[in-house]
Amino acid sequence: MAITSAANSSGTSPMDKWEVQLRKGCLELAIFGCLWPGKLYGLEILRRLESDSNLVLSAGTVYPLLARLKAEGLLESEWVEAEVGHPRKYYRLTPAGRRRASEMARMWARFSATLEDLLSPLLKASVK
């Protein structure tokens, strides 16, 4: 699976690796976040991930993942004929997908709030 951060796409240091792992772990949630407001097609999802979450993914990573989420019943898709003349496959969250997305977002919020409390002394110290 190819995934890099926009800031550090070629690094291989432990910090780079950790950052890639962290981002990758959030990938499903980030895709749910992209699709929460409405339907998008694959390339739009890729570009939204790049612009809004700094996740730079290869298309070869995101399309099989979308197919898997669809097979799990979390996404549904439809082909829409674009104005320029070629069809695009749009994805949207199913009710089960929306439930999963909400649960994951709540879990993420709890986790990050706890971690923030834990890390605030560390961050203050590193600023000094």
Binding site: S58, G60, P64, A67, R68, A71
Partner: peptide
């Protein structure tokens, strides 16, 4: 190139698809 090697891409699709199903 953004899609990667065709055989590897297909393998990912197949494995994910068949395991989820």
């Amino acid at each position: 190139q953004s899609l990667g090697d065709p055989v590897e891409l297909a393998k990912t699709y197949r494995a994910e698809n068949q395991m989820v199903r």
